[in-house]
């Protein structure tokens, strides 16, 4: 079921277009990856969802209801450019931000205490923010983003500034939030975290959506009919075994076997590759290679750049 949708959203700034008829569709209780190079318009879209700025045209809806100021309390936003008041105490500050999201004093206090315990940072409550390290401040920021239990969470580069241990902790928390029913929009350049977390993605480049859909089906769509196979006891040169139309991309010699990556022409199936190799060697493993999101990202963006 669709939780959030943007339809034909455009935004123009004096002299340049930040968003050009962008439509996205985010399913309930899923993680949606919003990808794109710097300056593509992701932050503009996120700010529009947060109602920090308004779109020129187009409509945004949460559960079919037109986006309005009442939705602010349902959204949690962790911006890429984030910080805290340096001179303020951590606890006071967290209370302040929670209350701005509409929580009552008692609610804000009890929930924050719970989160502080969970992250084992209760003793920071009375400390000033300037005494915290960057990673510590990020934890506090994550807490104030989620403390009002929003049903839509927007994370813009959430992992920047976290060490691997805390990044993992954060990743687990994000997945837990999803399990509890939250819908998450996740914007990042870090493609490996996209692969781990996202269900659906949209790739924005130069103000337009150039690719969107379910991540697994996108990977299927962009696979290049390439396979990796490992063989033992190869009796002939691999170049002599394979027909010239097969594109041998990579050869690697391992301890007692060899590994090849072969890209097949469009009409050739994996069975044909196997039947070519099997008479001359012992196949120990055989695997289809799916493109990484990183590869798809680079490919799509450079293609889009060329076509201009």
């Amino acid at each position: 079921m669709t939780f959030f949708e943007a339809e034909n959203v455009s935004k123009n700034y004096a002299g340049h277009t930040a968003l050009d008829h962008v439509s996205i569709n985010v399913k309930e209780q899923s993680i949606f990856g919003l990808l794109g190079p710097n300056g593509a318009g992701k932050t503009t879209l996120i700010r529009i969802i947060n109602q920090i700025i308004g779109p020129d045209t187009g409509e945004l809806r949460i559960k079919g209801e037109k986006l309005n100021p009442d939705h602010i309390a349902q959204i949690g936003y962790l911006p890429e450019e984030r910080g805290l008041y340096k001179k303020m105490k951590v606890g006071e500050q967290a209370m302040y931000l929670a209350r701005l999201k509409g929580l009552s004093k008692q609610d804000a206090y009890s929930r924050l205490k719970k989160w502080f315990e969970k992250f084992e940072i209760e003793n920071w409550w009375g400390k000033k923010v300037e005494e915290l390290s960057k990673g510590m401040a990020q934890k506090v920021q994550f807490i104030v983003t989620v403390v009002h239990e929003p049903s839509l969470l927007i994370f813009d580069e959430p992992f920047s500034g976290f060490d691997p241990i805390n990044a993992e902790l954060l990743k687990q928390e994000i997945l837990k939030l999803k399990d509890k029913g939250a819908t998450i929009i996740f914007s990042t350049h870090n493609m490996s975290s996209v692969e781990e977390l996202c269900d659906n993605i949209a790739l924005i480049d130069k103000a337009k959506v150039i690719l969107d859909g379910e991540m697994q089906s996108i990977k299927q769509e962009y696979k290049s009919n390439a396979y990796e196979l490992k063989v033992r006891d190869l009796q002939k040169d691999i170049n002599e075994i394979l027909p010239s139309s097969f594109n041998l991309k990579k050869i690697r010699a391992l301890n007692n076997c060899q590994s090849f990556v072969v890209e097949l022409p469009g009409n050739v199936t994996s069975n044909e590759l196997l039947s070519q190799v099997m008479p001359h060697a012992q196949v120990s493993s055989f695997e289809e290679i799916l493109p990484t999101m990183n590869e798809i990202f680079i490919r799509k963006v450079t293609e889009a750049g060329r076509s201009k």
């Binding site: 109602q51 920090i52 602010i72 959204i75 936003y77 911006p79 450019e81 008041y85 931000l97 999201k101």
Partner: peptide, 15 residues
Amino acid sequence: EEKTSRIVEVIVSSV
């Protein structure tokens, strides 16, 4: 101060 400490975007997402 709000601008340089980058808290402003957090706040304007609420108000």
